[in-house]
């Protein structure tokens, strides 16, 4: 086995299995987004705040995804870091209508980016500036400014505005993420 093959198998990519961490503050819409990505017959009707975390698996364009839907509530946020090591990609969801807690979203993102299991890895991060349908929602550009995303130099990242309830904007983001994962494979 060549060195590169070893590396990819260690990353779990050989078996085309990808672990995605879905992070973000409580009420940002993580579960709603993941629910939208599921096939329509498997979608849940009622979405309640997640307790701890939940795991969703689905296949898309030859890749099999395992999504860790973490709870964003303050008391569960310390669970996040235990999954960093095994994650191959991160989806970070922001409630664009919650201006007050933008600092908290930034603080948690900074903590995430500085974590030893994340800091030196080229792990792709997809940002959803969710709830763009709200009247006083901030634009994706403003959100990326407030979170200082331009400072992320050593990781591929992408931000798109979304409305998880109607499912708008999700496809664009997910396609970007798949491209990134494929690029990592080859």
């Amino acid at each position: 086995m060549g060195l590169f093959d070893k590396l990819t198998s260690w990353l779990g990519l050989k078996k085309k299995e990808v672990n995605v961490l879905c992070l973000g503050l409580d009420n940002s819409g993580k579960t709603t987004i993941i629910n939208q990505l599921k096939p329509s017959n498997a979608q849940a009707q009622d979405i309640v705040p997640t307790i701890g975390f939940s795991i969703e698996k689905f296949k898309s364009s030859g890749l099999s995804f395992t999504v860790f839907d973490m709870s964003g509530q303050g008391r569960y946020r310390n669970l996040w870091e235990h999954y960093y090591k095994d994650g191959h990609a991160i989806i970070y969801v922001i409630d664009s209508g919650d201006k007050l807690r933008m600092v908290v979203a930034k603080d948690e993102l900074d903590t995430l980016l500085n974590h030893p299991d994340i800091k030196h890895r080229r792990i792709p991060i997809l940002f959803f500036a969710n709830k763009m349908d709200l009247r006083d929602a901030l634009s994706a550009v403003t959100v990326s400014q407030l979170l200082c995303l331009e400072n992320i130099k050593d990781k591929p990242w992408h931000i798109c505005a979304s409305d998880a309830v109607k499912g708008e904007g999700l496809q664009e983001g997910v396609e970007w993420l798949q491209d990134q994962i494929r690029a990592m494979k080859t």
Partner: peptide, 22 residues
């Protein structure tokens, strides 16, 4: 991430326990 913007650094020194929300 190595470059926390300067302005954030300053406030975090002042009292690192609080985030300035508004």
């Amino acid at each position: 991430m190595s470059s926390v913007p300067q302005e954030m650094k300053d406030t975090s020194v002042a009292c690192s326990k609080w985030l300035d929300a508004h």
